[in-house]
């Protein structure tokens, strides 16, 4: 029988300590990689020196829903209920607010950092995508919820919403530590004709897909303008308008439905068009060549 000596006790204690230290270090590193979405009471006095501060405005999503007509027949015995959407809208008890996904972006690979084409070059730890909204906002007015987010410097892409990847056309941006950025206004539109914003209410998915819940989201990004003032709760920072660039035809790594953002120059009633991938994919490759 093995004897439990003082020496083995010390070895076990040292091993346990090492495991704990490794876990804590990894957690601390991980926390640094994550974004901080501030609550109103936690808004910092100054921009963190190691992170960039972003001011997002997410526009109200919708205030109504389609009235549905449930036809309960014998099918209910086998769990089948025919639900038909009517032409009538009914108001929601509370308005709906959207959320958007922001993901670290590898420009050279034209993909989410640590995913797909970028997988070989970037550690998975870096690839922490996160959502902004609908909660943890610092301020809400009639049309917008304002969010204040601190993230690690680097390049990010607006990846989509929880149901839709904007893989076919989105925007990317690069931020530096210690600076505060105005990210502009984002209008997330679910293509079901219920947008709060009448300009986008005409965007509608086919009826049979809507009935199956396969409705895509899209988004209009109003880029920030110089001189825009933030609400007083976050107004103490000197927000610089962020520079957006096109990002398109990256991978659908979260298995969502796919769409693109509403492009510049789009007018009401026009369909969203998908350009040939070659025309946009060339851009990041050329930039990478220039940079390297």
């Amino acid at each position: 029988m093995m004897r439990f000596t003082q020496r083995s006790f010390c070895r076990i204690a040292a091993l346990s300590f090492a495991i704990c230290a490794m876990t804590l270090t990894s957690t601390a590193l991980h926390a640094q990689e994550r974004a901080t979405i501030y609550k109103p009471a936690k808004v910092p006095e100054a921009a963190p020196s190691t992170q960039a501060l972003l001011w997002f405005r997410l526009a109200k999503h919708s205030t109504h829903k389609w009235k549905v007509d449930a036809k309960i027949g014998l099918g209910v015995l086998i769990g089948k209920v025919d639900v038909e959407q009517t032409e009538e809208k009914e108001p929601l008890k509370k308005p709906l607010w959207p959320s958007i996904q922001i993901a670290p972006f590898d420009v050279a690979a034209n993909d989410f950092a640590g995913k797909g084409e970028s997988k070989k070059d970037v550690a998975r730890l870096m690839a922490k995508a996160f959502y902004i909204g609908p909660k943890r906002f610092v301020f809400e007015d009639e049309d917008f919820r304002h969010y204040l987010v601190a993230i690690k410097p680097g390049t990010y892409v607006i990846g989509g919403t929880s149901s839709t990847c904007f893989c076919w056309g989105s925007k990317r941006f690069t931020v530096e530590a210690g600076r505060a950025y105005n990210m502009g206004e984002t209008y997330v539109v679910t293509e079901n004709g219920l947008s709060y914003w009448s300009d986008y209410a005409g965007l509608q998915t086919a009826e049979d897909l809507t009935a199956r819940g396969l409705v895509t989201d899209t988004m209009k990004l109003e880029e920030p303008k110089a001189g825009e003032t933030a609400p007083s709760v976050i107004g103490k920072f000197d927000f610089t308008p962020v520079q957006y660039d096109d990002a398109a035809f990256f991978g659908n790594h979260y298995g969502r439905l796919v769409n693109r953002m509403i492009p510049e120059g789009w007018t009401q009633g026009q369909p969203l068009i998908l350009n040939a991938p070659e025309t946009i994919v060339e851009e990041p490759a050329a930039e990478a060549a220039a940079g390297g």
Binding site: W168, T205, L209, R212, T216, L257, V258, L272, L274
Partner: peptide, 10 residues
């Protein structure tokens, strides 16, 4: 749904 969306956009 993705095929239909994509092909219609093309």
């Amino acid at each position: 749904a993705v095929m239909r969306k994509c092909m219609s956009m093309k």
